[in-house]
Amino acid sequence: MWNWFYKLASPPHFYRTATVLEPWLFWPALVLLAIGLYGGLVMAPADYVQGDGYRIIYVHVPSSYLSMFTYVTMAVTSAIGLIWRMKLAFCVAAACAPIGAAFTFMSLTTGAIWGQPMWGTWWVWDPRLTSQLILFFLYLGYMFLRQALAETRQADRASGVLAVVGVVNIPIIHFSVEWWNSLHQPASLSKLETPAIAGDMLWPLLVMILAYQLLMLALLMTGIRAQVLEREKNARWVGELLDTTGHEA
């Protein structure tokens, strides 16, 4: 176990692991995406109240969940990096930011498109929507901060602190619909309770969430590889890798 952990913590091994894992995450994600789309758009019945409009749930809930999952990953790896001064942890954190920003953008836009026919408005300054918008700005702030600080160590520390402090926003997003009066409906899925939606509507949602999760991990592997190469550019193994391999690998 520890042997495996130490091995993974060496940059060349970490890089190779990411390279090997990437296609095993990416292609199953695409297959699940196709199944989930067919399930959500064709197999699932129309909703009693929202008709076919509710089908936006199959792209809205997965992106919203991943927007938060990616942030927690970024905050936890930043904390590990800050506490144990682990460079590889910062590689993961830095790779999370653009992925999380993309999922948050998707969550906000699909939410606005869903809000228009159901609530009669694209946007309200509601606790759930506002805290999700703050999440988007946290990701942007993290990326701008990294870009502004030329020295990697300094960028890692400053952006790491921002990521850790910003994690307070995650429970606010999650509980906003319970703490305050919100236009947004409460959670459809919960780990502890039976889901609030019917089985034939539920399975495509679970498949889509899994597809998005695998896609996020595949994207993370690509991002990690770029981060590791950049930081290890003077190491001998990177030189050998660049010399011996062509465009691939």
Partner: peptide, 9 residues
Amino acid sequence: YVWSAYSIS
């Protein structure tokens, strides 16, 4: 609404 949400995603 449905198709624009899916397209953007």
